[in-house]
């Protein structure tokens, strides 16, 4: 099972492709928030399942890296398990579910609750990299808007939210301003995670396979969520704690338990939840 597949290059992609992607990554790191086009390859999984993220991961992974893959915060969902196994087979790297142990984390739609540290790399899977897309369908035009920092339209969207709902109703993929220059789509993470991107010690890379774009937030880069002076940015809050670990600080998923209206709230980050369960810490204390 853990044996590396024969007949494939290390981490699946050929070396020329990896070089091309690394060049794009370097450029992206040099211009925080700017979307760098790259020659996205066909990958052995469908678009929308993380083809962008998996290519970035394949290009930067080394033999001594420890990989963690999460999907909506969970280590044990199909997508996460498949991608983890893919790299175990093609690169023979160690994998983990523990955020602290990982050097490379590929994520879909969440940032781990456990704070990241210097030296770690977080790779996001991005479906639609262009934050202006829903407001301006022309790619030529959105590129110009980025180039000229012509971003008034972004606040039109937020204005519209407040006018309709009385508050900024955007809950995920909440647009951010990176390093005071480029507006960036943070991929569909909940806005709960937006503050974690700001001045994060880890390197954050974003890969969009179908749209063929890579962008990055280097360590300790300013990332501000857009808002109005009289309607400041706010994150989600829950009135209850996680039913499993009792955490009041993590992002909670609502799980329907039965068809009689029963439901429970649990952490979306499974690793965080497991490491905060009271029974486990009691066990550890007892050992």
């Amino acid at each position: 099972m853990s044996a590396t597949l024969e007949g494939y290059n290390f981490a699946y992609l050929d070396e020329q492709t990896k070089r091309m992607i690394r060049r794009a990554v370097l450029k992206a790191v040099a211009i925080p928030g700017y979307q760098v086009p790259f020659g996205s390859r066909e990958m052995p999984l469908p678009y929308g399942w993380g083809t962008g993220g998996i290519q970035v991961t394949a290009s930067i992974i080394g033999a001594d890296d420890v990989l963690k893959v999460i999907d909506q915060g969970a280590d044990d969902t199909t997508n996460a398990v498949s991608i983890r196994r893919f790299f175990r087979r093609t690169a023979g790297v160690a994998t983990t579910t523990r955020t602290e142990e990982a050097t490379l984390i590929q994520t879909r739609h969440r940032i781990p609750e456990t704070p990241l540290r210097e030296g770690q790399i977080l790779v996001y899977q991005v479906p639609i990299p262009e934050p202006l897309r829903w407001l301006e369908p022309r790619e030529t035009e959105t590129r110009k808007m980025h180039a000229f920092a012509d971003y008034g339209i972004m606040h039109v969207k937020l204005y519209e939210d407040i006018a309709r709902f009385g508050r900024i109703a955007t809950g995920y993929n909440y647009p951010v301003m990176v390093n005071g220059r480029y507006i960036m789509s943070p991929s569909p993470i909940p806005k709960f995670d937006n503050p974690k991107m700001d001045r994060n010690p880890a390197l954050q890379l974003f890969g969009a396979g179908r749209e063929k774009r890579i962008y990055a937030v280097p360590p300790y880069t300013r990332v501000e969520s857009l808002d109005f002076e009289d309607h400041p940015f706010e994150i989600e809050r829950w009135e209850r704690a996680c039913a499993l670990c009792g955490s009041t600080e993590s992002f909670l998923d609502e799980v329907v338990m039965d068809d009689r209206g029963g439901r429970m709230f649990v952490c979306s980050d499974t690793d965080y939840c497991e490491s905060h369960r009271p029974d486990r810490s009691e066990q550890e204390a007892a050992e």
């Binding site: 606040h155 039109v156 204005y159 519209e160 407040i162 006018a163 309709r164 109005f228 309607h231």
Partner: peptide, 18 residues
């Protein structure tokens, strides 16, 4: 909305008070 249409230029010029 009509309000957003009128406000767009203001927001483009940096108005950030709803």
């Amino acid at each position: 909305s009509a309000g957003a249409n009128v406000g767009e230029r203001l927001m483009a010029q940096g108005a950030r008070h709803y």
